[in-house]
Design a protein around this nucleic acid. Structure first.
Length: 586
RNA sequence: GGGGUUGUAGUUAAGCUGGUUAUAACGCCGGCCUGUCACGCCGGAGGCCGCGGGUUCGAGUCCCGUCAACCCCGCCA
C-alpha cells in the first residue's frame, strides 16, 4: 500500500509534501475552470483541487468523478488561500497531480453526510452507506474504545477471558430460545444461549476463579427500542465473592470505561439503594435519578374516612392508595392533566384521580370534595412540598400494578415538565431484589432473576409460607433509568439448589433431566461464587447518546426481527429441511 | 397477543370538505461558470400515491383487509 496519509490527518505540518491518498468522493464542486473535490476516509475529509492550468488530462479525469467513487489521488499539499474553518483539515488542500478511479459507484440512495433527511428504515436498508457517515462511525469508535477498556481493566484485575458454546442446550424458563436443529441427531435441537450463565458457574467449579467474556446472547422475545434478539454482554463471574466485591469491581469498570471511551469522570462509589426503596420512592426497579422530586407517597391514611368509597374499598381489599405531587404542573389545564390518565392506564391502573392543592389548601379537581384542609395539609406534609401549590395525582388498586403505574407517570411528568437533567450519568445499584415474583400467567412463583440466585440465608424460613418475602443476593446496575446490568451471588450447594428448584415447581426428575450436568458438578467441590452481566449495547447507547439500540449495532434487526440489509430470516431449500428431518406445518 | 403513529419521484415532505396534467426541496442528467466548500445560474428527466378489495360518474384523499417501519403494554430467568 502506497498511501501516505489518511485524508483526515492532513494539516499544515504536511505542507509541500507529496501525498498519496485513497478515499471516497464526498462531493465535487465543478466551477467550470476548476474542480474542488472533498475526499473522505475514516479519519475525515480533505479538499482536493484540480486545475487545468496544472494538468489538463488530470482535470478531465476529475470531471467524470461521481459521489462515492473510490479514487486514488496523488498530489502536493499546500496552504489554502482561503481556509475553511468548518473542517479540521481546512487550512490545507491537495493539488492533484494524478487521479485514478479504483471503484465506481452508482448514485447513492442516501447521502453520506453528517446530517441527512433519510429515515431509519431507508438508512438500515442502505446500512453500508449509512455506516460511512461520520456520526455513525463515531458511535463505533466509542464502542470500540469501551470494549477495549473493559478488556484491559478486567485483565488487570486478574480476570481470564474464556469462551462458551453458542450451540448449547435448551433450558426451561427464562426467555424463549432460538433453536438450531441437529442434523446428526434428528429431532434434537441446540439452543443459542440466552446467556452463558451455567457455563460461567462451571468455570468457577473448575477453579478459574475469575472469568469474563464479551459475548453474544440470544433471546427470542418481542423487541423494543433497547432490545435486540442478539445482543452483547460483558459477562463476569468470580469465586469467593460477596455482593460488595462485585459492586467494587463494576464501579471501577464503569469509571474506567467512561473515562477511556468518552473522557467523562464518574464519581465512585456508585450510589446504592434496595429494591424496596426504589419501588416505594420511584415506582421502578430502574429509577431514573436524573429526575429529582415528585416521589411516590402512600396516601392511604389521607383518604381513610374521607368518604371516597372507591379508595376506601380498595384499602379494605388490601390494595394501596398512592400518589405524587407535582408543583410545576399546578397551572396545567384540565385537558393536560386528563391526558396523564392515559399513561397510568397503559400500565394497567384502573384510572387516575387528581386534585390541585392551591394557596391556603384550597382544592379543586375531582378529588377536591373529599379533601378538607386537614387532609390537604396531610398530603403536603407527606410530599414535603411546603406551601407550594401543586397538582396531586392519585392511583389506587393492587400494589403491584399501582406503584409501577405511578412510576411511569412520574417519569412522564418529568419529561413533560423538562425536569430530566441533561448531559449527565446517574448510576445506581439496586440491591436485595426479591428472590421470586408471582406470575399471573403460571399461577406460581417464578425466579425474579434466575433459578441459581442465592437467597438471603436469614430469609430462608419464609421459603414456604411467604416466598414473596424472601430477599435474594441479586442486584442490578442502572444508569439514567436504563438497566445496564445485573447479577447475583449464586447457589453453590447442591441441596439448596434442589430446594429452590422444588419451590419453583421443577420436579427432581425434570431438574435431573434439564440441569443434571450442572447439579452433578455442584457435587465435586464448588466454591461460593457470583457475578454480573453488563449490557454492552445499552452501555454504548448511553456513552454515545444514541436513542435506539439499533444505532449502536452495525447490522441490527427491526422490531419484527428482520435484517433490512440482508432480508434475514429467509426461506431455505426443501433439501435443507429434508437433511434435518424437518417439515414445515401449513 | 393488544393499542397507537407512519407509508406519495432516488431522498425528505406538501397535497384542504373526493374533481382537469399529483407539487416542492435536495439529489440526478445536460449547458454555462477558475476559489468553491450546502458553490452559483439556466434547462430537463424522474411516480403501481405500500399492496388487495370496496364505495362513487370520479379515490393519493372515504371504507374494509393486508404488509412493512417505528413507539407503548404484555413478554424479555
Amino acid at each position: 500500500m502506497d498511501r501516505t496519509h489518511y485524508c483526515g490527518e492532513l494539516s499544515e505540518k504536511a505542507v509541500d509534501s507529496d501525498v498519496v491518498l485513497y478515499g471516497w468522493v464526498k462531493n465535487t464542486r465543478n466551477l467550470g475552470g476548476c474542480i474542488f473535490l472533498d475526499l473522505r476516509d475514516r479519519e475525515g475529509i480533505v479538499q482536493v483541487v484540480f486545475d487545468p492550468a496544472d494538468d489538463r488530462s488530470v482535470f478531465e479525469k476529475a470531471s467524470g468523478l461521481g459521489r462515492e467513487f473510490v479514487i486514488r489521488v496523488t498530489g502536493k499539499v499546500r496552504r489554502r488561500p482561503n481556509p475553511n474553518s468548518k473542517i479540521p483539515t481546512g487550512m490545507v488542500e491537495v493539488v492533484a497531480t494524478g487521479v485514478e478511479v479504483i471503484s465506481r459507484s452508482e448514485v447513492p440512495p442516501i447521502e453520506v453526510e453528517d446530517i441527512i433527511t433519510a429515515n431509519e428504515e431507508t438508512r438500515f436498508r442502505n446500512r453500508v452507506l449509512d455506516l460511512r457517515r461520520r456520526p455513525v462511525q463515531r458511535i463505533f469508535k466509542i464502542r470500540h474504545k469501551a470494549v477495549q477498556s473493559v478488556r484491559r481493566y478486567l485483565d488487570e484485575q486478574g480476570y481470564m477471558e474464556l469462551e462458551t458454546p453458542f450451540l448449547a442446550r435448551s433450558t426451561p424458563e427464562g426467555a424463549r430460545d432460538f433453536l438450531v436443529p441437529s442434523r446428526k441427531q434428528r429431532g434434537s435441537f441446540y439452543a443459542l444461549p440466552q446467556s452463558p450463565q451455567l457455563f460461567k458457574q462451571l468455570f468457577m467449579a473448575a477453579g478459574f476463579d475469575r472469568y469474563f467474556q464479551v459475548v453474544k446472547c440470544f433471546r427470542d422475545e418481542d423487541l423494543r427500542g433497547e432490545r435486540q434478539p442478539e445482543f452483547t454482554q460483558i459477562d463476569i463471574e468470580a469465586s469467593f465473592v460477596e455482593p460488595e466485591d462485585i459492586y467494587e469491581l463494576v464501579d471501577g469498570l464503569i469509571s474506567r470505561t467512561w473515562r477511556d471511551a468518552i473522557d467523562a469522570e464518574v464519581d465512585l462509589p456508585l450510589p446504592r439503594m434496595t429494591w424496596q426503596e426504589a419501588m416505594d420512592r420511584f415506582g421502578s426497579d430502574k429509577p431514573d435519578l436524573r429526575l429529582n422530586g415528585m416521589e411516590i407517597q402512600d396516601l392511604s391514611d389521607v383518604f381513610k374516612g374521607s368518604g371516597f368509597k372507591v379508595f376506601e374499598s380498595v384499602i379494605e381489599d388490601g390494595g394501596v392508595v398512592r400518589g405524587l405531587a407535582a408543583p410545576l404542573a399546578y397551572g396545567w389545564s384540565r385537558k393536560q392533566v386528563q391526558d396523564l390518565e392515559a399513561v397510568v392506564k397503559e400500565h394497567g391502573a384502573a384510572g387516575m384521580a387528581w386534585v390541585k392543592l392551591g394557596d391556603d389548601n384550597v382544592t379543586s379537581g375531582p378529588l377536591a370534595r373529599f379533601l378538607n384542609r386537614e387532609r390537604a395539609e396531610h398530603i403536603r406534609r407527606l410530599a414535603g412540598i411546603g406551601e407550594k401549590p401543586a397538582l396531586v395525582c392519585v392511583c389506587a388498586g393492587k400494589n403491584t400494578v399501582t406503584v409501577p403505574a405511578l412510576g411511569a407517570l412520574r417519569l412522564e411528568l418529568g419529561k413533560r415538565l423538562g425536569l430530566i437533567e441533561r448531559d449527565t450519568y446517574r448510576f445506581a445499584w439496586i440491591t436485595d431484589f426479591p428472590l421470586f415474583e408471582w406470575s399471573e400467567e403460571e399461577h406460581d412463583w417464578t425466579p425474579s432473576h434466575h433459578p441459581f440466585t442465592r437467597p438471603r440465608i436469614e430469609d430462608l424460613a419464609l421459603l414456604d409460607e411467604n416466598p414473596g418475602g424472601v430477599r435474594s443476593l441479586a442486584y442490578d446496575i442502572v444508569c439514567n433509568g436504563s438497566e445496564i446490568g445485573g447479577g447475583s451471588i449464586r447457589i453453590h450447594e447442591e441441596d439448596l439448589q434442589r430446594r429452590i428448584f422444588e419451590r419453583l415447581g421443577i420436579s427432581s426428575r425434570e431438574a435431573e433431566e434439564k440441569f443434571g450436568f450442572f447439579l452433578r458438578n455442584l457435587k465435586f467441590g464448588t466454591p461460593p461464587h457470583g457475578g454480573v452481566a453488563l449490557g454492552m449495547d445499552r452501555i454504548t447507547m448511553i456513552l454515545t447518546g444514541a436513542d435506539s439500540i439499533r444505532e449502536v449495532i452495525p447490522f441490527p434487526k427491526t422490531t419484527t426481527g428482520q435484517c433490512l440489509l440482508t432480508n434475514a430470516p429467509s426461506r431455505v431449500d426443501e433439501r435443507q429441511f429434508r437433511e434435518l428431518g424437518l417439515e414445515l406445518l401449513r
